[in-house]
Every structure is written in structure tokens, then in C-alpha cells.
Amino acid sequence: MVSLFVAITDRSWFDLLSVERPDEVNFWQPSGFRNFKAVSVGELFLFKLHAPNDFIVGGGVFSHASNVPLSLAWEAFGIKNGVTSLPEMRRRIAQYRRDDALLDPRTDPPVGCRILTQPFFWPREQWIPVPQSFARNIVTGKRYGSDEADGRYLWEAVVERASLDLATTQPAARYGAPQTVRPRLGQGAFRLTVTDAYDRRCAVSGERTLPILDAAHIRAYGDGGEHDAANGLLLRTDIHRLFDLGYVTVSDDNRFEVSHRLKADFDNGRHYYDLHGSPVRGPQTGYAPPSADALAWHRDHRYLG
């Protein structure tokens, strides 16, 4: 049995993203104080417009949920938040929360992020009428199971309309039992997933100041690396820069290694040499460890030795 979640959204959010056709979207909530657990990774998250437009108009594959500061949500997703600017997103949050103090750009309120990959936006003739079980007094959304009639109806209607990368390659799966879908992470999903995987701490220094933490690709995306948590490390910004340039790496016994070139090139770097040989922290339980192949690639193709 798999689950589907039908969430209520604004028409303006849907209209903007249906034109942009992004590779991922952030279905955000104006209050970032609750953990979203209605569906699991790979299950479907569907968009329903506000009444009287009682139709499901698109959706995506659920990838990750996180509560992050507004600044990070905008930096990670930009227009994929369904708004055209950070000030507009701030105005909407202040409006929804009925708190004009949030209009002050010095505030950085938490935002609930539900990150969806492979989003799909249907033309009007493909919209799906919501089941009668979706009550008018529902405020945020409703979960359906594929083992119930309405859940199965929604699954079959979505599969008929959307091209989904199903978790099995068997031809019969298209009209067979509902199943999870392979999420293909975009840059924003990669960033927040890696950030949470490492408990918002630099894997090398332990730094917790979120604005200076980066989700670093171990094997660069431009060199064949993927937006996958196993291809990521959460690093302080300066360490990330040195990692990309090859002045530091992770040894095969999972320790921080600093190249002799750092001192040779800049006659400096004592702070980094103090970290040389320290263990590199792994992700939290439930997340894949860094890929040994990706780390070997970095040592062989980036590290200056």
C-alpha cells in the first residue's frame, strides 16, 4: 500500500509554476513549526485548487520535508517556490500568518518546505475532480491510501496523465499495484536533504551557523556527479571552496586531509592544517553514507596531493 496526499494550493502558485515547468518545486507552508509525515519519500503529493475550483490540477513526487529559515528556502528554490521574488514570498507569509512584523526584512521566519521532484501541471481538460470524501472544511490537505477506493481512483487517474519513473521497470506496473516513484533530486532538494542529513552541522568542523553551511557535491555535477545525498557533504563555506578547488579531501579511512599545496600556494592555512586527520562526520541514521566511489573520484581527479 502506498499513500497519496492531496494538498490545497493557490491558483497563482499553480499558474506561475505551470508556465515555468521547473524540475522541482517547494510546496511551502507559511509556518515552519510542524513536521510533515503524511507521505513517505517516493509517494505522490497532489495539488488541489481552492474552492470553488474543486479539482486536482497536478502534483509531484515527494522527496523531503524540512523547516528552514525563509532566506534559505528562497536561496535554495527561488522561483520554484511559486513566487517571483523574496519580498513577495515574505509578503505572503506575513499575510497568511497575519503578522505585519514579518514584513521587516531583518526577520527570517521559519518556513515549512515540502520538496517535490518531477512535478507535473495539467491543462484544464485533464483536471481531476476531487473525490466526495475530500470535505469542504479541509484546510491544508488529506491523505489517501491506495488500499481504499478513492486512493486507487486517484492513483490510476494520475498514472494515466503523468509520465512517472516507477520503482519497477516491469511493463505491467503502469496499471498494476500502486507503488513509489523514484525521486530525481534537483539542486534545491539536494541542498536541503544534505543539510538535514548532517543535522545542520559541518561534517568537518562541526559548525552550526546555517547561513555559512553549504551542501557540497563530492563529485561535481558538471563532471557526472548527481544531486544525490550520497554524493554530498555538508561543509562550512570556506571548506567547501577548498574542497572544490582540491586543497582538501576525505581520505579512504574517512578523515579530513589537507594538501601541502595550501601552504605552498598561499603561505597560510594553519587553521585547516589543525583539522588535518580529524574524522569526517557521517550523516544521521536513515540517510545514505557518502559514496565511496564519489570520494575516490575526488581524491583521484580533484585533490592536489
Rank of each mutant, 00 (worst) to 15 (best):
P110Y: 14
N137Q: 06
F120N: 11
P123M: 09
P105Y: 10
D104W: 05
Y144S: 02
W122T: 12
P105N: 07
P105K: 07
V139N: 01
R106S: 10
P109V: 03
D108M: 09
L103I: 06
F134D: 03
P109H: 10
V111G: 04
Q118D: 14
D104Y: 00
W122I: 14
P131G: 01
Y144F: 10
S146A: 03
R124T: 15
A135M: 07
A135Q: 09
C113Y: 06
P131S: 00
R143L: 06
N137S: 08
T117P: 08
V130N: 03
F121I: 15
C113V: 14
D108Q: 09
S133Q: 04
Q118V: 14
G112N: 13
D104R: 00
T140I: 11
C113A: 13
W127H: 08
G141I: 08
P110I: 09
Q126Y: 10
G145E: 09
I128Q: 06
E125M: 05
F134V: 03
S146L: 00
F121G: 11
G141M: 04
V130R: 03
Y144H: 00
Q126V: 09
F134S: 03
D104M: 01
A135T: 04
I138N: 01
P123Q: 11
W127I: 02
I115R: 10
F121Y: 15
E125C: 04
I115T: 12
G145N: 08
V130S: 00
G112H: 14
P110G: 05
V139I: 12
F120M: 14
F134T: 06
G112S: 08
V130C: 05
R106D: 12
S146V: 02
P131M: 01
R114P: 08
F120L: 10
T140A: 14
S146C: 07
V130M: 02
V111K: 01
Q132I: 10
Y144T: 01
C113S: 15
L103T: 01
Q126W: 04
Q118Y: 08
N137K: 12
S146P: 03
P105C: 03
P110K: 08
P119L: 13
G112V: 11
D147S: 08
G112R: 13
V111L: 07
R114K: 14
Q132W: 09
R143Q: 13
P105M: 05
Q126A: 12
T140K: 09
G145L: 09
D147I: 02
I128S: 06
I115H: 08
P129Y: 10
P131C: 03
